[in-house]
């Protein structure tokens, strides 16, 4: 019973990882690719780890698996946030189907500060080549 459940969890996790990789290969722009890579991959790692813990069924193993899952769930969004911010800063283009971009003009390119209300004049602030 536990073996079957563990095999099912591992298969599901691998399926989610495959979907994540397919999304990274197929999606049209960087940000939609990051959607696919952070979430599905996090869920995939979590499911595979749970399956492995169930397969071995030992305390030490379970502890390690819980540590990995907590770590991955905490760090994957942080990595995505840093990469997304850096990529937006570096001027990676958005997909042409993107309906609106609330971030446009809110970055001060010289100080790397993000402003909440007033817009920065793109022509004067954008002279730092990125």
């Amino acid at each position: 019973m536990a073996q079957n459940l563990s095999a099912l969890l591992i298969l599901l996790g691998a399926l989610f990882m495959f979907i994540a990789a397919l999304g990274v290969a197929r999606m049209p722009d960087l940000f939609t690719r990051m959607h696919s890579s952070t979430k599905s991959a996090t869920l995939g790692v979590g499911l595979i780890m749970l399956g492995a813990a169930l397969h071995f069924g030992e305390i030490g193993m379970t502890m390690r698996v819980v540590a990995i899952i907590v770590f991955v769930f905490l760090t994957a969004p942080v990595a995505a946030h840093m990469l997304g911010r850096a990529a937006y800063f570096a001027g990676v283009p958005l997909w042409e189907g993107t309906l609106s971009d609330a971030l446009r003009g809110h970055y001060d390119r010289r100080t790397h500060r993000l402003l909440s209300d007033e817009k920065v004049d793109e022509t004067s602030a954008g002279d730092l080549a990125v």
Binding site: M17, A21, R33, S37, V72, L83
Partner: peptide
């Protein structure tokens, strides 16, 4: 672009973590 490649590498390492567990 370079960030695209980094996304690919990031996912590659996640897949490798899963692979090692399997």
């Amino acid at each position: 672009s370079l960030p695209d490649r980094v996304v690919g590498l990031d996912l590659l390492s996640s897949v490798t973590v899963g692979f090692i567990a399997v």
